[in-house]
């Protein structure tokens, strides 16, 4: 068993846990997006660790990291689009005030 692999996977798990806490506990849309960024960062650490310590001979692991980075960029773009629309209509991006969107 490799200590380096365990260290990297533990870092990924910790970032995932902190991200889950942030995404669930924050009331501001931008702060919720920060939590989601940390969750995705935790996934990225795991992917790089799997590539380096288990399969360094294939580039599929690195390719998967590029896809996660794409997801991060998309999440930011759409999240800020929603934030601008919400701020324009209600003057706030507080998600506590968006309960009527539940229908």
């Amino acid at each position: 068993m490799s200590i380096e692999l365990i260290l990297a996977l533990t870092t990924g798990a910790a970032l995932f846990g902190v991200g889950i806490y942030g995404a669930l506990s924050q009331t501001n849309l931008v702060m919720i997006m920060m939590g989601v960024e940390l969750i995705l960062a935790g996934a990225m650490v795991n992917l790089v660790a799997f590539w380096r310590f288990l399969h360094p001979d294939t580039a599929a692991g690195q390719m998967f990291v590029l896809i996660v980075m794409t997801v991060m960029a998309i999440e930011m773009a759409v999240g800020f689009g929603v934030a601008i629309a919400r701020f324009r209509s209600r003057g706030s991006v507080e998600m506590e005030e968006a309960v009527e969107l539940k229908g």
Binding site: T10, A13, A14, V18, I20, L24, S25, Q26, T27
Partner: peptide, 19 residues
């Protein structure tokens, strides 16, 4: 600017321990 803090802490902690 937070809500459901206890639930969030537990969810984060359980995710970390599981990982």
């Amino acid at each position: 600017m937070t809500h459901q803090k206890r639930l969030s802490l537990w969810a984060g902690f359980v995710s970390f321990v599981g990982g």
